[in-house]
């Protein structure tokens, strides 16, 4: 636990070194660190996290999105990164608004993001710019709406 608390700020420090305005906010909760990034800094900083040998976040465990409807910016896209070398976890978060619900795709950095991004597009309706095949993955192709949005009723539209 001690090592975790010392080392995670290393990632934050490196992010701030690379781009002084690139880190909007750092949240610590229950021993987990969340770094909130502006959307236009995501690819640059994600690349740093993956390629820096002292960080080595080569393993993208998971991606998920949270809908904060009706608060704007409405969508939070979370990236759960794992460093197998240093046994660390880090969460990146990008927030986008309803009108402009799109995030650059990280499939070029972590190929595993492909299906996660399709799932978020399918269920939450956040677009990923530069994704090779942004189609529905869990719902049928002709489905209307994005079921995980908070303004979509749990029972569906009937």
């Amino acid at each position: 636990m001690g090592a975790e608390q010392q080392d995670i700020p290393l990632a934050v420090r490196k992010l701030k070194e690379r781009d002084p305005n690139g880190v909007a906010e750092v949240i610590s909760f229950r021993g987990e660190t969340t770094v909130v990034l502006p959307r236009n800094r995501l690819l640059n900083l994600a690349e740093l996290l993956k390629s820096d040998p002292e960080l080595d976040f080569a393993f993208l465990s998971d991606m998920t999105a949270v809908d904060r409807f009706p608060i704007e910016p409405r969508f939070e896209v979370n990236y759960h990164l794992t460093s197998l070398t240093y046994r660390q976890r880090l969460r990146l978060q990008v927030r986008v608004t309803t009108k402009d619900a799109s995030v650059p795709s990280v499939t070029g950095i972590w190929p595993t993001a492909n299906w996660h991004e399709r799932e978020i597009w399918d269920l939450m309706g956040v677009r990923f710019e530069g994704h090779p095949n942004l189609t529905r993955i869990l719902m049928p192709d002709d489905w209307e709406g994005h079921p995980h949005r908070k303004d979509y009723p749990v029972e569906g539209y009937r």
């Binding site: 987990e32 465990s61 998971d62 998920t64 949270v66 979370n78 976890r89 969460r91």
Partner: peptide
């Protein structure tokens, strides 16, 4: 209020629960 990610080693691999 807050969000956590908890992973365990399920028989198939990393089973993670993100709860907000």
């Amino acid at each position: 209020p807050g969000q956590v990610y908890q992973a365990i080693e399920s028989p198939r691999g990393e089973l993670g629960f993100f709860v907000c």
